[in-house]
């Protein structure tokens, strides 16, 4: 599990991106994605990838962590990209027995790979550098329903707490010589582990809820932040 879970404060320090209002960053991410989705030209997409890489560098993200995240793309994307050249009908590039990749398929795979990587880079730079609290606040100011924002902020508050709870249970399992293997005992243990996490979080939520009611929680948090758009 990642240390990113505990990084609830600003992750990007004092880069130029960091001076932009979180709302600007969210809206920019959406608008650029919408634009990029409708582009099918390899030249323009390659240019966009270079641009996105520049933005990522500007955001002050380490090259290693960025490449690491790009490589960790979902397994099925890799399946998609590998299969596409061979299953798309079109001009054959070369023949190697039954293996006949087509030019069209290869182009389609390249377009998809470029789009995924460009958009992922932009998202990393624009959204990945926001703290969950900033995201919650930005969504609130963008008029997202209040109870959804509160749900987000409270979940964020307790994820690190429950992750510690999880780590505690795993240590207890280790002390009892548990080794995760591919068998029913392991799956039963993990099933009970998830159940235990749910039961404990539920008990904790009752205490939290009572404490909040004692302090006069009326269904909405009070926020302390200006709603003025921040610019350079």
């Amino acid at each position: 599990m990642s240390n990113a879970l505990h990084a609830q404060t600003d992750q990007s320090g004092t880069s130029a991106i960091n001076y932009l209002d979180p709302r600007t960053r969210l809206l920019t991410a959406v608008l650029t994605t919408v634009t990029l989705i409708s582009i099918d030209s390899l030249v323009i997409l390659t240019g966009a990838l270079v641009f996105a890489a520049g933005i990522t560098a500007l955001a002050g993200l380490g090259a290693f962590s960025v490449v690491h995240r790009l490589v960790l793309l979902e397994g099925f994307v890799i399946v998609l990209l590998l299969v596409l050249p061979f299953t798309t009908t079109g001009e054959p590039l070369f023949e190697l027995g039954p293996i006949v990749p087509s030019g069209e398929g290869l182009k389609l795979a390249a377009v998809i790979a470029l789009k995924i990587n460009t958009i992922t880079l932009l998202n990393l730079a624009l959204i990945g550098t926001l703290s969950p609290l900033q995201v919650g606040n930005a969504l609130r100011l963008l008029r997202v329903p209040g109870n959804l924002v509160q749900l987000l902020l409270m979940s964020v508050r307790y994820i690190s707490v429950l992750e510690n709870e999880y780590a505690r249970i795993r240590r207890a399992m280790k002390a009892r010589a548990f080794v995760a293997r591919s068998n029913v005992h392991t799956w039963r243990t993990f099933g009970w582990l998830v159940g235990m996490l749910l039961v404990r979080s539920f008990e904790r939520s009752r205490r939290v809820s009572n404490a909040m009611r004692c302090r006069g929680f009326n269904g909405s948090f009070t926020f302390h932040s200006e709603s003025q758009w921040k610019s350079f």
């Binding site: 109870n147 509160q150 749900l151 409270m154 979940s155 964020v156 508050r157 307790y158 994820i159 707490v161 429950l162 992750e163 709870e165 999880y166 582990l193 998830v194 996490l197 749910l198 404990r200 979080s201 539920f202 904790r204 939520s205 009752r206 939290v208 809820s209 909040m212 009611r213 009326n218 269904g219 909405s220």
Partner: peptide
């Protein structure tokens, strides 16, 4: 609104799981 703490903690537990 009263169910927000319960929902949030259970959602967090499921996210961790």
């Amino acid at each position: 609104a009263e169910s927000i703490p319960q929902t949030a903690l259970l959602a967090a537990a499921l996210f961790v799981s």
